[in-house]
Each structure stands twice: as structure tokens, then as C-alpha cells.
């Protein structure tokens, strides 16, 4: 079986700074894979390198068995889409939801855009009432739903999620996580999800990779974390930190 995403000894260098130091990973089709780490660990850079937003210095990336060159073609973006962290920054401030959703359809020449936009909005639980609103007329959670709708409207098989809920309130986070799980089940999507929160990754993913300073710390299954079967000190620290403050 070919992997949905296969990353082989990937190096990313920004102006001499090595943001990724030879990271490899393999995500199976339909799997949900998590990347955990603190800021500067390179977890977001890995996502950006896959979609072509970060300069790859060496190493290889393959999606659905196809090795990617330095340029991504249109067909690639119909397979892979991404949801950004900041719902306030990822929607164009001068465009209505309708325009935002129309754009990918226009670029890829879909004919039945009316129906698709309505269906996409229904799917993320927004409905027709939101279609002609501007981003500033939406709450953070609603914006993130629009961003998810935009990512799904091209019917990709792989969704990259860059801390999709870290800017949201806890109660809204639960709603968005539930939505993501639901669309994944319905569309049999492959997820590659980045978060600094171990609990979110264990909740959402089957396997995960812990990252630090642009490198891999260890690969785990979510069940390993639940049973606290971790081998590296760094992961143990993260686990302890996620329990909250302990007075000494």
C-alpha cells in the first residue's frame, strides 16, 4: 500500500537557520497522524514544506506515491489542503464567505459552484445564513468552520491542520474538533495535524511524532501516551506539563 504522505530525511533551511533537520515520517491513507512539539520544533515548518510554502534544502516528499518536485501543480492542491492556525488571519478581510468559497471552484473550473458552496456550508454546520457575511461578521469558531469548508470544497483526500483550534475558546475548540472528526469519518480523509497540546493529539490521532528543535524525538502510538509508555525525557516532560501546575 502506498503511503498518503511520505517524508524522507527532509531538511528545511531559512537563511542559514536549519528549521528541519532530516525528519522522516510515513502517513497511511485514512490515518490521522499528529505532530507535537513546542515553538521552534519545526512541526509547522514540516506542514508548510509539504504544501510548498517552505524552502526544502534536501530530502524528499511524496504524496500518494508521487514524488513532489520544487513546484506544486494544480492537481496537487486538489489532493492536499490545509487549515491554518489563526482564524482571524486566514480569511481575506474584504471578501464574503461566498467569494472565499467561490475562488477555489473558479480556479479549478468547477461548474456547479452554487450547489457546492451550499453543500460545503451545510457540511461545516453553518448553513445558508452565513453565505454573504464578511469575516468580521463571524466569531472565531465560525471563521475556522469557513476555513475548513474552503479546504474541503476541492474534495481533497489529505488535510493538513496547523493548530486549528489553539486560537479558540475551549468550548468552541470541542465543537471544531468534533467537526473535524466527523468530516474525516465521512470523507475518509487522511489527517496530518500539528499541535502543542498532547491531549488534543491523543484525542484526534492514532499515531504521533514528538518533535524538538527541528528533529524527531520519538514516534508513538496514541495508546502509548494514554498508558504513559514513553521512552524519552522530553516527552515525559511534556506529559507532566499537560497535567497542569504542581506545587513543590
Amino acid at each position: 500500500m502506498t503511503s498518503a504522505i511520505s517524508v524522507d530525511r527532509l531538511e528545511v533551511i531559512f537563511d542559514r537557520f536549519r528549521a528541519l533537520k532530516g525528519v522522516s515520517l510515513d502517513v497511511q491513507p485514512g490515518e490521522s497522524f499528529g505532530l507535537v512539539g513546542e515553538s521552534g520544533s519545526g512541526k509547522s515548518t514540516l506542514l508548510r514544506a509539504i504544501v510548498g510554502l517552505a524552502p526544502v534544502a534536501s530530502g524528499g516528499i511524496a504524496v500518494n506515491g508521487k514524488t513532489l518536485g520544487p513546484r506544486r501543480d494544480k492537481a496537487f492542491y486538489r489532493e492536499v489542503q490545509m487549515v491554518f492556525q489563526d482564524p482571524y488571519g486566514s480569511l481575506h478581510p474584504r471578501q464574503t464567505v461566498d467569494r472565499l468559497l467561490q475562488e477555489p471552484l473558479a480556479i479549478h473550473g468547477f461548474a456547479d459552484s452554487e450547489k457546492r458552496i451550499e453543500r460545503a456550508l451545510d457540511e461545516v454546520g453553518l448553513g445558508k445564513g452565513f453565505r454573504f457575511r464578511y469575516a468580521h461578521q463571524l466569531s472565531g469558531g465560525q471563521r475556522q468552520r469557513v476555513a475548513i469548508a474552503r479546504a474541503l470544497i476541492l474534495e481533497p483526500s489529505i488535510l493538513l491542520l496547523d493548530e486549528p483550534t489553539s486560537a479558540l475558546d475551549a468550548s468552541v475548540q470541542a465543537e471544531v474538533l468534533n467537526l473535524l472528526e466527523e468530516v474525516r469519518r465521512r470523507r475518509k480523509l487522511t489527517f496530518l495535524m500539528v499541535s502543542h497540546d498532547l491531549a488534543i493529539i491523543t484525542h484526534m490521532c492514532e499515531r504521533l511524532m514528538v518533535m524538538q528543535n527541528g528533529g524527531t524525538v520519538e514516534n508513538l502510538a496514541a495508546s502509548d501516551l494514554v498508558e504513559r509508555r514513553v521512552t524519552k525525557d522530553y516527552t515525559r516532560n511534556l506529559l507532566r506539563a499537560s497535567d497542569g501546575f504542581v506545587r513543590v
Binding site: 466527523e182 491531549a199 491523543t202
Partner: peptide, 17 residues
């Protein structure tokens, strides 16, 4: 509504305001 490492709850309970 917060995900927990040691609890497997799908879907997460949401807040009904």
C-alpha cells in the same frame, strides 16, 4: 469539553449555552 489524555470520548461533549 477539553480533550484529556486518559479519556477516550468521541465526540467531545460540547457546551450547550
Amino acid at each position: 469539553c477539553m480533550p484529556r489524555i486518559d479519556a477516550d470520548r468521541h465526540p467531545l461533549p460540547v457546551l450547550d449555552r
